[in-house]
Design a binder for these strands. Structure first.
Length: 224
DNA sequence: TTCCAGGCAATAC
DNA sequence: GTATTGCATGGA
């Protein structure tokens, strides 16, 4: 039976370091990414480097809900060009923000989500949020909360997404779709390391884009 | 043209 | 707790 560390090693050998979470404006370069997608920073775990980047990660985590990252990037660039990547600017310019985030879809509800989160973030005043505090914000569900804790605050929380659920089922690791059960499984069987958790989740997404996207899913027994 | 994308909340049972 | 539905743009 494959251990999770062995699975992690195989994914890392196959796809290399992913450099998540992408930061727009950062001149990153990842050979596994193509086109206009930028902002990845392989082997550099020093992010976020400031409060602006931390907030950008949080906003991106909300905008990418059920949405391709290339579309999210367009919205983030729109916001960045207007210097709107701060909680105060989003609070003060709701209608403009709503227009600027159209490329990433669901723009009416996501604009409200960004407003809700911005108010919450402003009230935090630099303090790190607790998981249950994040979950109390309308628009922040479990995956978004955990993405924020992991990538914006470097806390060792394992992020579970739709791809992770397909992978654990496909490899026969677990027979459940339950978010907390899957998260507990990864967290209990891996070193409690922010670097490993962030890299592992990114690798699962990269792998699943190749094998667990369009049905029927492709065989990936080389991981077993 | 159809399908898919790094979910979430509301609702119904 | 599980199942269903609306939310929307843009690329393959």
């Amino acid at each position: 039976m494959l251990t999770l560390m062995q699975l992690y090693g195989k994914l890392l050998d196959s796809y290399g370091h992913q450099g998540w979470w992408p930061i727009i404006g950062h001149e990153g370069n990842n050979p596994t990414k193509t086109g206009s997608i930028k902002g990845y920073h392989p082997k550099d775990y020093s992010f976020p480097r400031n409060d602006c980047e931390r907030f950008e990660i949080c906003i991106g985590a909300i905008l990418t809900q059920n949405t391709n990252w290339a579309n999210v990037e367009k919205s983030l660039i729109n916001l960045c060009n207007k210097d709107f990547l701060s909680p105060q600017k989003i609070i003060d310019n709701f209608d403009k923000v709503r227009e600027l985030i159209k490329p990433s879809g669901y723009y009416n509800i996501k604009a409200k989500y960004l407003l809700n989160f911005s108010r919450f973030y402003f009230e935090l005043s630099k303090r790190a949020p607790a998981r249950n505090e994040l979950l109390a914000v309308k628009g922040i569900g479990r995956e978004t909360a955990d993405s924020i804790l992991l990538y914006a605050y470097n806390e060792p929380i394992f992020v579970v997404d739709a791809y992770t659920k397909r992978l654990v089922k496909g490899l026969g690791l677990l027979d459940t779709e339950d978010y907390e059960t899957i998260r507990a499984y990864f967290e209990a069987n891996l070193p409690r390391s922010f670097e490993i958790f962030s890299e592992f989740h990114a690798l699962i997404v990269e792998h699943a884009k190749h094998y667990y996207s369009k049905k029927p899913y492709r065989l990936n027994d080389f991981l077993k």
